[in-house]
Nucleic acid binder design. Structure first.
Lengths: 232, 232
DNA sequence: CTATATAAACTAACACTGTAAGTTTATTAA
DNA sequence: TTAATAAACTTACAGTGTTAGTTTATATAG
């Protein structure tokens, strides 16, 4: 009923071998250079054979993106494991540092999931969104812990609009307890952190900014004292 | 010496006609669908004829990117023209609103300059950087005006590291007078604003966030009262 | 042990892309 | 009227994703 693949000896698991070859291509030549024939060449197989494991190029890319999102979420979660749950400021700082480091380690991977580096590909949001949300959840958990401990000081200069409150109420219903201000703060911090990293990865800083990491760490430090003023 | 092009009657200025057709393609089918043959079809010319006006596809894209950066900078500058130079908070707010609106008006254009939507294309930074810097200059001018008027309150919880100070000193030398804290603040605000817009354009908000504009305006409002506390 | 079903490989081909080379044509200047 | 030249053209090549049809190796059923 289920025969073994022909070149089992050379590629025990061709599905993952294809993905690995794809990542290798992406790492060496950039995400835009990804192509099925190149993968096939690297593996010594015929290009159409890939279609036995992925319906088409876009589905292969989606698989890569899902793996990348999972990797980011795992990396985020691991980055705070060694820090006490009481040290909310340090945890937030660690998350921020880790976010940038993960992006810089493999910029193509970062741009693959947050940019649109591939011609004709649009991510199927219903599939990628859930995995993408995992890293945001890590951030929100840290903020929520700080909030529950009374250590978080969100900015309350403006009241949340009724529309925002409604949106966050819906979100709470799905995801369990979470303060509205914490929800907003998670999105705002993510946006800030993500923007700074994007500018750096995309090489959009002015030429005088020779050390974007310093900018980033300074901005991150200010966030910590802004939202966890009694950390120290 | 300089003969008129053959189809001058149909396309008085073929160079700009090519760019317009390119933008139309980008707007209708997305940046990734941009291709020379499609442009040629739309204009009723042969594809290789484009090479008389642009050395290759990448140079055409670069021309589009330069136009887009100029458009953004012009839009930013125009957005504060009607606001008094004394109302620093309102000016910053207008810049923020305009940044998002410019991006949302033509998301493909935004992704063309800030993403990497085209296979095999890498922007020539030495050409694009100067134009790209114009919009940042508008932001920095607004912040600097507020600073000179004594209305700006940058966060000084952490001192700028020596490396940051050195970087900013170099920058000052080139661009003229600008406070170090103002320089940092411009980059930080830009990163924040850019990140929130990127997340929205890239459809990376969690599915419950049905109104990203509200998130954005709230974040922007908080920035205003944070950095211009006495604005009202 | 043989025969058959089937998953997984293959080859060949199509339509598309960017681009290079060589050729023709229209316009200008001598 | 003729020669020069810029700008169009046709043709061709190598690359791409993808489909269709075919072969082959394996696993199970009789």
């Amino acid at each position: 009923m289920s025969p073994r693949p022909h070149n089992h000896e050379r590629h025990p698991n061709l599905q993952t071998a294809i993905k690995e070859a794809a990542w290798k291509q992406i790492a060496e030549l950039g995400a835009t250079a990804l192509n099925l024939r190149g993968i096939a060449r690297a593996l010594g197989i015929a290009a159409p054979s890939i279609y036995n494991y992925f319906p088409n190029r876009d589905d292969l890319i989606t698989a890569l993106i899902i793996d990348a999102f999972a990797s980011l979420a795992d990396s985020q979660a691991a980055s705070i494991l060694s820090i006490s749950e009481q040290e909310h400021g340090r945890r937030l700082f660690a998350l921020g540092i880790n976010y940038r480091e993960w992006a810089i380690a493999k910029p193509e991977r970062y741009q693959l999931i947050f940019g649109t580096p591939l011609a004709g590909y649009v991510a199927p949001l219903d599939i990628t969104q859930p995995v993408a949300g995992r890293s945001l959840a890590v951030l929100m958990n840290v903020l929520m812990a700080g909030h529950l401990a009374g250590k978080l000081r969100p900015e309350t200069g403006h009241a949340l609009s009724p529309q925002l409150q409604a949106m966050f109420a819906d979100w709470q219903q799905q995801r369990g307890a979470a303060d509205e201000q914490v929800q907003f703060l998670a999105l705002s911090i993510w946006g800030h952190v993500h923007g700074l990293v994007s500018v750096e990865i995309g090489q959009q800083y002015p030429p005088f900014i020779t050390n974007p990491g310093e900018i980033y760490r300074h901005a991150l430090g200010l966030m910590i004292i802004r939202y966890f003023p009694n950390s120290e």
